[in-house]
Design a binder for these strands. Structure first.
Lengths: 231, 231
DNA sequence: CGCCTCCTTGAGACTAGTCAAAGTAAGTGG
DNA sequence: CCACTTACTTTGACTAGTCTCAAGGAGGCG
């Protein structure tokens, strides 16, 4: 995966030039909270996090799912304060980089700058992708896309037809993330299961086994409005 | 508006330090095309553009509407090639900045760097906003949000209750942008008109007059899932 | 004037949301 | 160890909002 290569390369470059501290967090831990002062960027080296934000009506919107090797924390740069909260979903390893120090390092090593901008560009592309391509898909196809995206990001390079993947999010959060209801998420998964495309590999239904990856891809593509090169 | 202030301040700082060329384009002109090599960032100083991309099925997705003082072109940074096409919607003035030169200037003046990052952060926030907050609104509320957003960006600081605004996009493009159909756009506008919230000020129905801004805001807020500080 | 594009409106179909209920797994305290 | 609670998941019936298909109206331009 290009993004994996690029951002881990970036991270190793960084280690020599700025202080990069490691941080281990566990499911439910808040890495940064919405409204808190922005000081630090993070790189996910292992694990998974979600970025969320509370609404007035008590609901919690979910913005994105972050897996290694994603960067985290760009939402604080614009306003000086974090716009979203970042919450770990499982045991998660983070590399923490002070933004001020990073700025200094970028001055000295311009190639770092380009690499960082590329990372920010990828983050933007992901959001644009979700906002434009996923928007009008029927729920089952949207769920399928989510699974394919999850597989590609968590098992990069794996090309088998059967792939097991653990869902890092509960149904409720998946629903929020995909812009649908818990019931629709459940129905979509049941539908894919009855089609023989996926199966559950644990009792809690949190581990999904994709039984036929090409078929799932075909299913998603069939009614998909858009095709995009994998970024 | 903070974004206006920030990014025009950034632009004047830039003028002293990198070569900033002016470019005037007209409705329909392609500023950059999807797939072309990325070399330049743009700042919209007057006018409006849309970023679009063709799908396999012949439809054209619309990613965003760009008004002054937005930056344009970040989509090319990650991959070295423009992911989207930028098309002018009316007479539009652009400031063009070579990215390579910009990188050099950023090394010398770190405050520029922070300002640029802030601009990129705002771009991300806008997409995230659309992806999370607009997603689940009913079509009429989504249309109302679009109008409010448009007014805020095209008439910053205007606080009258009656404000006229020209729609830079045709119904079809608005529909694409908001993730709905042309018919729904039309019906949503008719609905808002029958509610007495808006009226048309030209025959072609491309100019909308908001008759009661607070009422429109209240209408949108009423069923809105989320509230966010204006970024 | 006629053509073309854009916009509006209507009727019916269908997707996905809402409301309601039941099943399952994990954790707690007796 | 078991009954209980709690959170998560699934399923069903119904409803509502949006899309589709179809037709008609209004401007702009040759």
């Amino acid at each position: 995966m290009q993004s994996a290569g690029t951002s881990s390369a970036l991270l190793s470059l960084l280690r020599d030039r700025v202080q990069v501290t490691q941080r281990l967090v566990h499911a439910g831990d808040v890495v940064y909270a919405s409204g808190s002062a922005f000081t630090t960027l993070f790189v996910v080296t292992r694990g998974a996090l979600k970025t969320t934000r509370d609404c007035l009506d008590g609901r919690t919107r979910v913005a994105a799912l972050h897996l290694a090797p994603d960067w985290l924390g760009f939402d604080g740069i614009a306003g000086g304060a974090c716009e979203w909260s970042a919450i770990a979903l499982c045991d998660t390893q983070l590399a923490c980089i002070n933004y001020g120090e990073l700025l200094n390092a970028l001055r000295a090593w311009p190639s770092l700058l380009q690499a960082l901008h590329a990372e920010m560009g990828r983050e933007m592309a992901r959001h644009r992708q979700v906002a434009t391509a996923w928007r009008r898909l029927p729920v089952t196809e949207r769920m399928g896309r989510f699974l394919l995206d999850l597989i590609e990001r968590s098992h990069p390079g794996d090309s088998g037809t059967r792939i097991a993947v653990a869902l890092p999010l509960a149904r409720h959060d998946i629903a929020e993330l995909l812009g649908m209801t818990v019931e629709s998420v459940s129905r979509a998964l049941s539908h894919l299961k009855h089609e023989g495309l996926i199966g559950f590999s644990d009792a809690a239904h949190r581990c999904i086994e994709v039984l036929d990856l090409p078929a799932l891809q075909a299913f998603v593509q069939a009614r998909s409005v858009a095709v995009q090169p994998t970024l």
